[in-house]
Computed example of a mutant assay.
Amino acid sequence: MDRRTVLRATVAGGAAFCGSLWADAALAAPAQPGPGPYGELLPADTNGLQLPAGFTSRVIARSGQLVPGTSYLWHWAPDGGACYPAGTGWIYVSNSEIPLAGGASAVRFRADGSIAAAYRILGGTTMNCAGGATPWGTWLSCEETPLGQVFETWPDGSRSAEARSRMGRFTHEAAACDPDRQVVYLTEDEKDGCFYRFVPDTWADLRTGRLQVLCAPAEPVTGPVTWRDVPDRDGFPVATRHQLGAARHFDGGEGCWYDRGTCWFTTKGDNRVWAYDAVHQRLDLAYDDSLVPAGAAPLVGVDNITGTAGGDLYVAEDGDNMEINMITPAGVVTPFLRLLGHPSSEITGPAFSPDGTRLYFSSQRGTSGSAAGSGGVTYEVTGPFRR
């Protein structure tokens, strides 16, 4: 029996996606393809982006070139990102997923959307892939390398970045803060990676605390879970993911996003979007391409994820046809945008401006497909987003 058949049987048997995870909808199963709220994608604009009617795009930065209106060279291989309010404007931060000289940069915007400044907020780190925003206004930049660390940074550049070693040494990918339970969820980009949470001794202070790993049987796919402390968060000589036999393993942890009792995270090895119900400590599936009719899956190569106040999820693709797909509260998965002419790249860093009217993201390697990320391009899409 192939994976698709097994999963369909599992969902039919009662391990389906739990409708309580979306406040305003009763979803009975993982998301399925359907028409989106914005209609069909139009022909590509001058930036190579196919967008719905009413949406426009602009390029705000290119790797190795000056950010328009500034003297700052934009970093290579732009990856995970987030937005922050700043006075009457806002800031977009972006990681750099390159070895040794990774780190993170920021672009500051004025109230009218024009660029006011660009600058470095983290240096001297390596392979900064994704990360996550904190409720207290900092950016957690994660190193995607064995024994990698999380670095807390200040988007306005007011303080030097600080390592948060107590959050564990492993192949970090993304982070998402849960202010209700006062924990930070963490994904791990390994084929047998784990899903973690950091429990700080004091909320908003990540210098001390406990690192825990999600524990559950490998089968069934969904159901109740528990958390156990990781014995040695430094991960040497035994990697954190191998220290507890009860730890649940995931095939390539990627993006992570928390909203109203649910932490959504993605796994690229099996093209899944998971939903961890933090209220009931239950794991469910929000999307799985194996539960979509063969050949009809719009979302392949799942990667970074973000969401809106209205409950829409936006999931970026690594490869495939270079889309950002929506998963709506009604359980519909549908393309929101498609980027043409970037066949050897991936879409990274999706994040909304504080007012929800602008979406930022990057093509990590751009049209060149350079493995070093020298062709990276960072975009802004403006339009009537649902909020």
Rank of each mutant, 00 (worst) to 15 (best):
D232K: 00
D234W: 14
A247M: 00
R282Q: 01
G255E: 05
P179A: 07
R233S: 13
R233Q: 11
G269T: 07
L214E: 11
A216K: 09
G269M: 08
S290Y: 15
D189S: 00
G193Y: 11
C263T: 15
L244V: 14
F236Q: 11
C215W: 02
P220T: 10
Y276H: 10
V230Q: 09
V273D: 11
R228Q: 14
E254S: 08
P179R: 05
A204W: 03
G269S: 10
C194P: 02
R272K: 14
V184M: 06
E190D: 00
T226Q: 08
Y185P: 09
D251Q: 15
V183K: 00
C215Q: 09
L214P: 11
F198E: 09
N271D: 15
A176I: 02
R272E: 14
A239D: 03
D284V: 03
D234V: 06
G252E: 07
V292A: 10
D229Y: 14
C256A: 14
P220S: 13
V238W: 13
A286P: 05
G235V: 10
P200W: 02
L214Y: 08
R248P: 07
V273H: 05
C215T: 15
P217R: 11
A275Q: 13
A239F: 05
T202G: 09
G252V: 05
G252S: 07
A218Q: 13
W227F: 08
D192P: 02
